[in-house]
Design a protein around this nucleic acid. Sequence first.
DNA 1: CGAATTGTCTATCACTTGATAGAAATCTGT
DNA 2: ACAGATTTCTATCAAGTGATAGACAATTCG
Lengths: 243, 243
Amino acid sequence: MRSRSTGTRKPRATVHAGSTRRRHRPGSGYARGEHTRQRLLEAGIELFGELGYERASTRAIARRAGVSLPALQYYFGGKEGLHMACAEYVTEDVRARLGPAAERVRLALDRQGLTRAELFELLRAVVEPFLEGLATERPESWALFFARAQGEHTAAFDAIFQQVSARLLAIVTEIISRLIGRPTGNPEVTIRTVFIIGQLTLVRRARPIILRALGWPDFEGARLQTLKEVLWASITQSLAPAC
Amino acid sequence: MRSRSTGTRKPRATVHAGSTRRRHRPGSGYARGEHTRQRLLEAGIELFGELGYERASTRAIARRAGVSLPALQYYFGGKEGLHMACAEYVTEDVRARLGPAAERVRLALDRQGLTRAELFELLRAVVEPFLEGLATERPESWALFFARAQGEHTAAFDAIFQQVSARLLAIVTEIISRLIGRPTGNPEVTIRTVFIIGQLTLVRRARPIILRALGWPDFEGARLQTLKEVLWASITQSLAPAC
DNA sequence: CGAATTGTCTATCACTTGATAGAAATCTGT
DNA sequence: ACAGATTTCTATCAAGTGATAGACAATTCG
């Protein structure tokens, strides 16, 4: 009774293999398309971040982007495609901000026989940009998207973020390993590493809770400085040799 | 065109004020009702945990509970009511497990002039049950529900969980304050407290990541012991006086 | 028993969602 | 200017959502 179907047909899972299907070569011509693509990407990041994947409807995204609904399917193949594209987009930014520092530290670690002070310096060099990136946020929407995507376990995001996360983890593992004088594979090394990095991510995840507990409006200027110092002191002390 | 409406009327937000509306006094008689109520609660915890609030449809919940759809509305007033009831249900369990230890520590803290060793002992007394509760989980579904509800910021869950969280926070704040010799309101005290507790919650939140990094199947027996020891060592060291 | 209360279920409602068809508009290189 | 590719839009689809009406069954207690 409900459906006035014009014959049977499968509505979902049409031919396209679920990937972006841009119709033009990215370099040349048809610039207008690239613009609405960008708009959709930004609107997607905003709304996925504000509402989460489910609550953010494709209609709302299209409306905020100022384009019509089918544009979303046209450019990203569907809602999930857009979500994945958003994840790639923000991850690229993170990579750009962490990459240089990480690379420098990696090279420095090739040298054997570093002093404790030098190792701490390297740890700081890789930890600080990470913490700052988490505490002070670019477009507020990115942070939200990031937090949200990590909470909802999207296959897409996991795979993408792993690239960044794995590198950071590897570097910190190496430093901790030398600092506490145990091999890289040792459980203690792994546990300490994971929890140090995890602690940093708390700045993002538990952000409202921390701010409320402190009575702070945000992590800017002097307050960010205080946060960094206390956290750093806590980390260095926890890695100090028994005394 | 679409709607064959039988007259205009508002579909949402009907009369009931959104609260459980149990029709019978909880103590006596009509035992069958209490049973399906319980089934819905358990099914709700499972599916909200597995799929999140949005993806868990009322139909799926009713099906898993082995009852019909309207039973959900009948007992909990609607989907949101069930979600809130689930939150209360699991929180009550947490409270029961943490309460006694917390109360003992609170009383012990009334005494002034405790030694550092005694303070550490108290911290451990309150931290360990918390950690164990997070690492080894009751019905696996509870843990999932917990993590999920905390990620999706439901007003209901926030308010409920606050009760438990606030008590733990207050106690740990007091201990840290004495250990590092600064007043309770000091930002350093607050930051360290929040991050110590936050670190513990990571056992739940980052559970899969940590397990994968370690190559462990779970946190049981000897592995749980190792985790506890390393974490505890890290915490005590980070609170050690500069030396 | 028998009336009132309490619990359950089928059928359906109004509405939203993601997606598509297909015409129309726009742009491109020739 | 024109053919062909690219982009955008309106209208519509089928499936699924939470919720309700109201008949029916079970339970309680006089």
